[in-house]
Design a protein around this nucleic acid. Sequence first.
RNA 1: GGAGUGAUGGCCGAGUUGGUCGAAGGCGCUCGCCUGCUAAGCGAGUAUACGGUUGUUAAGACCGUAUCGAGGGUUCGAAUCCCUCUCACUCCGCCA
Length: 426
Amino acid sequence: MLDIRAIRQQPDVFKAKLQRKKVDPAEIDRLLERDAAWREHLAEVERLKALRNQTSEAIARKKKQGEDASEDIARMREVSARIQELDGRVRELEAEVRDLLLALPNVPHDSVPDGESEDDNPVIKTWGDVPQFSFAPKPHWEIAEALDIVDSERAVKITGSRFVLYKGLGARLERALANFMLDFHVERHGYTEMFPAFIANEESLVGTGNLPKFGDEMFKIEGLPYYLIPTAEVPLTNYYRDEILPADALPVKFAGYSACFRSEAGSAGKDTRGLIRLHQFQKVELVNLCLPEQSYDVLEQLTREAEAILEALELPYRRIEICTGDLGAKDAKKYDIEVWLPAQNRYREISSCTNFEDYQARRANLRFRRDERAKPEFVHTLNGSGLAIGRTVAAILENYQQEDGSVLIPRALVPYMGGIERIAKA
RNA sequence: GGAGUGAUGGCCGAGUUGGUCGAAGGCGCUCGCCUGCUAAGCGAGUAUACGGUUGUUAAGACCGUAUCGAGGGUUCGAAUCCCUCUCACUCCGCCA
C-alpha cells in the first residue's frame, strides 16, 4: 500500500512512477477526489462530535446541580441523528479510499530498467560453466521416470494434474535439499529457522499483498476465511504484523521451509511435464525486515545468499534484473536467479529476490522505533527464494545426468544423502 | 464436538447504581536530581491512528475526533446496559 499523504503532496510524481507500471494516471485523480470527499465529511462529523461532547458534559453538570437540561438534550438528539448519518457516509468513503489504495501497485525503484516484458530483463551476471554432454541430455522428467524417483502418473490418480509424488531416492533428495538449504542459511547467513502453518488467514494475505487482488491465484479453504499459503513469505512476513519493533531487533532474518500452493500454475499450458510448474511445491523462503535506508543493501545481500546455494551445489546460473513491464504489483525492485537446464537449453527461474520497501509493511502495519521516544516508522520488507526445491531437483537431475541414465549427487549434498553419491537404476 | 470463564494502555491490574475515563494504582521505560560507583530514594514524563491549524512539502507545537477484542443497538451521553461475531483459556470427549 502506498502512502496516501505522500500521494496528496506529490500526485504528479506518483502518476509518473506508476505509469511505468502501466497504471492510468486517472486512478490517482479518482483516489484523490474520494480522499478529499472523505476528509471533508470527516471534518464536519468531527465538529459535530466535539459539540456533542461539550454539551454532554454541560448536561452532566446541570443534572448534578439539579438544573433543567431538557433543552440541551433535545438539541443533541438532532445532532446525534445527523452524526449517525454522516458517520455512515464517512465510513463508505473511507472504505472506497482504502480499496483504491489497496489496488494500487507499488512504485518501481528509480534504478529499475524500463521494459515491456520479460524479454527486456537485462542479465546482470552469469556464474558457472554450462555442462557439455557427449550425448543428448534428457529432460528431468524422463530421467526421474527412468530412475523411478518421481511418480507423476499416480500423483494424478491420487490428486490431479500438476501434482507429483517423490519416491525413494527422489523423496530423499527433496528432503536433503530442504535440510541443506536451511542449515546453509542458518549457519552461514545468520537466519532464524521457521516452520509455519501452511494455511493463513485473510488478514495475513492482505498484509503481504496477495489479497484483495490476487485471490484467484490461491487455493481457498471452503467455508473459511483461510487460504493455502502460496509461499512461506506470507506467514513469515506477517509474524510481526501489527507490532512495533525496537530498532535493535532489526534486521530480522527468517528462513522458512514450507509447501507452496498455487492455483494459477495450471492455466498457462506451459511446462505441462516435470517439476517446473506445479500446484504444490516446496521451498525454503528467506524473509528480511530491515531499516528503510538499508533495504537496497539487504536486497543485494539476500540475492547473494540465494546464489550461494547454487554455487555450493555447483549449478550454473545467471542473475537477471526484472524490468518495469515484468515487475509484480507489490515489487519495488526484483532480481530473478535462473538456473541452467540443459535439456531446455536455457536458464529457468529458481529464485526471486524482491524489495517491497514499505508497501507490505504499511499493509501489515509492521513498524519499528528508532529509539524509545521516536515515532514508529514502517520497516522495509524483502524476500527471496532460497531456493525452490522442485526446480532445484530438476536442475540437479539435468545438470548431473550421466550417459548411463544415472545422476551424480552434488558434493555438498552427499552428507545429506547419507553418503549416497549417485542415483542409479535399481 | 459438549460445558464453562474471560477479552482494558509495553506488562500487571482497578473500574461493573451509564455522566471531566484515554481510562486509578503498580511494574517497566525515558529525562532530571541525589550518590565516590552500583543499588535504593526523590521529581517530571511516558499509547496509537486519523483530520485540522501553524510551520521552509522539515522537526515540532497546538486544536479536534476515534480507540477499553470486533461489529451493531439503546441513550443527550457507554469501558460500563442489550444483541451478534471473533479469539483465548479451563474441564470433558475424540485424536496424530
